[in-house]
Write a protein that binds this DNA or RNA. Structure first.
Lengths: 303, 303
DNA sequence: GAATCAATTTGTCCAGGACAAAAGGTGGCG
DNA sequence: CGCCACCTTTTGTCCTGGACAAATTGATTC
């Protein structure tokens, strides 16, 4: 494939950025950006740099900013805004160096060694600490490396696969089996599975019974499954890329249909910044707080 | 959520059926179907039965049929056509009854017991037979139960999760480590991961070295990753829901960019019916043939 | 049977208008 | 000072109807 193909059709841009065709045309009409070239058939051809800027715009808008304020800014300014919003380095230097060396293996495509190294760290730290002080910071580092273009799709997927294998393995090995019963899933449009597995790992370690439905579960089906399965808690995960508004809307709607005796928990980077505060929904901003929330639930519900 | 909400906006229908808004409007203009009602603001409202028929149409078209021939048919006729195309029961009665009892557990939402039962069958059969004579027929049965509406989203996801855990676990336990080196993934728009894991399980059992990149890998990145990682084989998986044409196009394009010394394998239900025959691409119609293909490769390439 | 060419089918794009829903701002009131 | 009701602006999605290229089919010839 032509990696350096320099222009994209409107359909390609829609796939690539997640901005609907209608919106792309409307922005062009209203704001004068983007301003694609035209091919012989008068169809839009977006240059790569405009697509890059559109990607940045989309992410900022998903975080709650408004197009009108952003669209005049340069790509550099947008990138700076995005960095301000997102990643505030890793505090602990030990964790940072541990993660860096793992990421180095990833960059070299050493899948086997990466796997072995992860396994080793897991054994040393134990599951909960592995999740909170290795996987969580790694996700963050990889996220920002991805934004900077230092990591490509294949590497990111490879990472996800390896971590997924390790976590699923570790979760299976844990017992679980007592209360509460937790149903884990994500809303439609959320494809990222690692947050879910991290939450499951934390909770299973504390003896909770977890059932994961994977990603992309329609609201109505979450509700039905939670009631049918006799669950105490429904836990949803939202990655950094998930539009905050969509998350809030979904949680609000689900809280309304879900019976009051089933708790609703939500976690993930999408909600970490602007902690929304929705009546009857527990927002867990840091994965390490999951154990605390569980303890709290047990104190309340098992006298 | 209102499960029995009887009408859908055009955006909802697009999400639900995968048919673009433009196409929905064009069909209405050209063929007179669908013929949605309008709300107070003159926006289309599609009744549920029309959406059901659209779903059937989409699947048949993805199999290579033409809209003009199908669109006049009733939903019943379409359903019959689809059944003719797809599922031809399970031959082996032992396998069928084994699968039925597992599916029964699924229907009852007994996640734990399902897991234990699967684990037990795996231990009894061994990984390869487990994949070929338990998982493969189960997928098929669940697929048709899903078409008949006997299984809902949550149950289908629960099944996928449980099988995924079992397979990932089993794959990790196998050694692998010798040639060939196989890169496994799916094309964009293909979300189903079980086919990939089944293939990985078969190949790892034979001692091949497998690296999975999970689902949804853009063509250009598959090419780049295969070359960078020194792989001998790229293996792609296509579920029954994947449009055959899109699969063929993708395979053709990938074959062109991929160096000749890297083999390209493709498998899955999407290709099982109309075995396409693409120069330089091995189509593996039955998961059990994976071992044979591997042997063949070894005979050719390690003298 | 294979290959070439014309006719038909089909999906995607375009322009520009309309409008509802969301967000932001303002002022009064407790 | 916080909160609520109301108004203005912003923003995205939908609409119509026209156009055309790409894919597919069918006819004709070799």
């Amino acid at each position: 494939m032509q990696k350096q193909q320099s222009t994209f059709s409107i359909a390609a841009v829609e796939r690539d950025t997640g901005l609907p065709k209608d919106t792309l045309r409307m922005w062009e009409r209203r704001y004068g950006f983007p301003q694609p070239e035209r091919d012989s058939n008068d169809e839009r051809l977006y240059p790569a740099d405009q697509v890059d800027k559109l990607r940045l715009l989309k992410r900022l808008i998903d975080q709650g900013m408004r197009p009108g304020k952003l669209i005049m800014a340069s790509a550099d300014e947008l990138a700076r805004l995005l960095e301000n919003h997102q990643p505030k380095g890793i505090e602990c230097p030990a964790a940072a160096s541990r993660c860096s060396s793992l990421i180095e293996l990833l960059r070299l495509h050493r899948a086997d060694e990466l796997r072995r190294a992860l396994q080793q760290v897991l054994l040393k730290q134990g599951l909960q600490e592995f999740v909170t002080s290795t996987i969580a910071p790694m996700n963050q580092m990889i996220g920002s490396a991805w934004l900077r273009g230092e990591i490509d799709v294949a590497e990111e997927h490879l990472y996800t696969e390896q971590v997924q294998n390790i976590l699923r393995n570790a979760i299976s090995a844990q017992g679980g089996g007592s209360r509460p019963r937790v149903l884990l899933t994500t809303l439609p449009d959320e494809l990222h599975v690692l947050g879910l597995l991290m939450a499951e790992a934390m909770l299973v370690s504390e003896g909770a019974t977890c059932v994961s439905l994977g990603t992309q579960m329609p609201l109505a089906d979450i509700d039905a499954a939670a009631q049918a399965g006799g669950f105490d808690i429904v836990a949803l995960s939202f990655s950094a890329a998930f539009p905050a508004r969509q998350a809030i809307d979904g949680l609000t709607a689900l809280r309304q249909t879900l019976p009051a005796n089933i708790s609703l928990w939500a976690g993930g980077r999408a909600l970490a910044e602007r902690k929304p505060g929705i009546a009857g929904v527990s927002i867990i901003t840091d994965i390490a707080d999951a154990t605390g929330a569980l303890e709290e639930w047990r104190n309340k519900n098992l006298q």
